[in-house]
Amino acid sequence: MRPWINRRVITTTAFVLAGAFAYINLDYSIAYSLGGKMVDRHEERLRGPEAFSDIPDNAERSEALFREMGKVIESPRCMNCHPKADSPTQREGRPHTPPVTRGVGGMGAEGLQCSTCHGEENVTFTNGEGSIPGHPAWHLAPATMAWQGSSLKGICEQLRDPERNGDRSLDELVEHNSEDTLVGWAWTPGVGREPAPGTQELFGALTRAWVDSGAVCPGTAG
């Protein structure tokens, strides 16, 4: 259920734990205590486009690039707000609490908008046990762009389809993945959340390389 948690991280976390953190049960100490300091390790976990340059076949390389992009796309930081259902998930994919709903434009229900709780920046809880995410445009991806429950191949095909990718050309998709600051939140998710692997820059470069290599989806190359 939490494939990205490995024993190494737990050990490191335990080392960081002290004082009030000692209250937290194991599951939560993992979720709560991983901060930005872990980024170096996650960078290692996402390879850049050059790592795939030795794949001679264009389509195969394109596929491999997308699989690498998938490490980001399928991270909880991205998936949580691309739900098929009416409500997002949180943490490592469990139901969002309080039980919010999509509302108009993915901004939340009238009276309980995303902005009722989420401000423009992440805010660390006073108890030090985590944070609430923030971004000026914090909202849910539209239902047409839902990823939860889809295979990576399905998501890939969706990303190529302007009807289901927010009406973006492939070039615009590269720009979105490289520069959109809400996408970028995935790498600075605040205290208590593991960032998406790598960096947004790397993710953007992978997207560029994938598009340049024909934007082939996994399982479709020869």
Binding site: P98, P99, V100, T101, G103, A109, E110, G111, L112, T116, C117
Partner: peptide
Amino acid sequence: MSAIGLLGLIEDPSDADIDAAMAG
């Protein structure tokens, strides 16, 4: 405060509107 915030946006809320707005 939540109820007033809701009524400021939806004058005549349905049960579903109330459920959604007051869920927090």
